[in-house]
Write a protein that binds this DNA or RNA. Structure first.
Lengths: 228, 228
DNA sequence: TTCATACTTCGACCGTAGCCGAAGCAACGC
DNA sequence: GCGTTGCTTCGGCTACGGTCGAAGTATGAA
């Protein structure tokens, strides 16, 4: 009678389809306006506005005003992580209406999870990095010396990352693969670098597409057994 | 409009106060009957029965019939983990009605999280084990050779644990401490052992109480810097 | 057989919360 | 000033879902 309700109030927020749509639309880490979110959720602007104030009041979102727009984003990577965890549960749960549309396939292959790479490629990335000794651990991840060398070479400023409050490496459970992929500051930095290098492109929504060349490069680094 | 609803349906299940109470009542890993759960949730038996069939249909619970009773338990440690994660969110979220009752204090000190130790003691356990080199990693945990020796000595059959499908070590985020404690098969085995040794006692609900002697022993092992 | 217990199903009631139309603000451009 | 755009607030409608009383099923005991 006491602790139940505390989880119920949050869960109830996530439990409305419109709000759930809003949140998943924000899972790519971008900030979106009220009207964009209304469209994503399939409701009118007034309705979306109402939902957004609730989510904001619960600190699941943060709002930022810019001129006459209001941009909303997830307030924290933790929120995204809980959402992914719920998707995982939803699958096991049998609520899986096996909807194998083309968009679904693309999502499974590679997508953005808040600000890092997820899906098949995301899992490959972490597996490859582990196999080659760049990253150690299974649930609590740590960067190895070898990894430091590699990612510096790759163009990532590790000192910079380590200054922040955010953990550098973080295992994030992938709802489609049921395995972990790499989150945290390093995960985010890698995705940025992949974009800069032109290996991947961000499409509408959370889908990430590899260029032909990018897929080759990525594969030669991460999906082959250690090539040394 | 497509992936939102999948998380919404699960979240909506968790979002009803009565169901949330039922689930948190089951978080200690025990199996309870319909009537017990009805009382825990503060609703009539018919109502509870309805909720339980929904939770069961969603595979969040598993039912087991024994005579004229029906026992329900959480279907999986994963479910408990998501619930703990939600509690964490609920806190950050400001839904924190800071209710510092005596029971709350006891819960914070030591409690059962599905089947392993959580709360201050749980976090101490993992910290101590890490500091002394029994367990390596930060998010992905692994047992070290030294840890194998120690826990065997402690009375745990590690070979047995490693046979099962369940991961031996698992970091589980503690909602009250905002740090990880040790879950997985090893976490469960340690709690059993603590009970067997008479170091701790399980009270009503999820509260775990240390005996005077038990607290001393536990402390000398886990809360001091390595005593070697 | 009869009664008691444990639970499920049915039916009806009621409240809450989501939804939209309309109106009200606020920021920007002209 | 006026009009447009982006968003919020208000009011009323509606429907979904939680709730309980009552009746029905199953197990076990006397």
């Amino acid at each position: 009678m006491k602790e139940g309700p505390v989880i119920a109030s949050v869960a109830a927020l996530l439990g409305d389809p419109a709000r759930a749509n809003i949140l998943t639309a924000l899972m790519d880490g971008r900030a979106l306006t009220v009207s964009e979110l209304a469209e994503a959720a399939g409701v009118t602007i007034q309705t979306a506005s109402g939902h957004l104030s609730k989510l904001d009041a619960a600190n699941l979102l943060t709002a930022e005003k810019q001129g006459r727009h209001r941009y909303f984003r997830l307030s924290d990577p933790d929120v995204a992580q809980v959402l992914e965890a719920l998707m995982g549960l939803a699958q096991r749960t049998g609520a899986t209406r096996v909807r194998t549309g083309p968009k679904d396939a693309a999502l499974r292959a590679a997508r953005v999870c808040y600000d890092h790479l997820a899906g098949e490629r995301g899992v490959e990335l972490l597996n490859g990095a582990s196999q080659q000794g760049f990253i150690a651990g299974e649930e609590q991840l740590a960067l190895t010396d070898r990894g430091r060398a590699f990612f510096s070479e790759f163009g990532i400023d590790l000192n910079q990352l380590e200054k922040g409050r955010r953990p550098v490496c973080r295992a994030c459970l992938d709802w489609s693969e049921r395995r972990s992929h790499l989150g945290g500051a390093l995960g985010a930095a890698i995705l940025s670098r992949l974009l800069e290098k032109g290996w991947v492109r961000r499409d509408a929504g959370r889908v990430v597409t590899f260029t032909c060349e990018g897929l080759g490069e990525f594969g030669s680094i991460f999906t082959l057994p250690a090539q040394s």
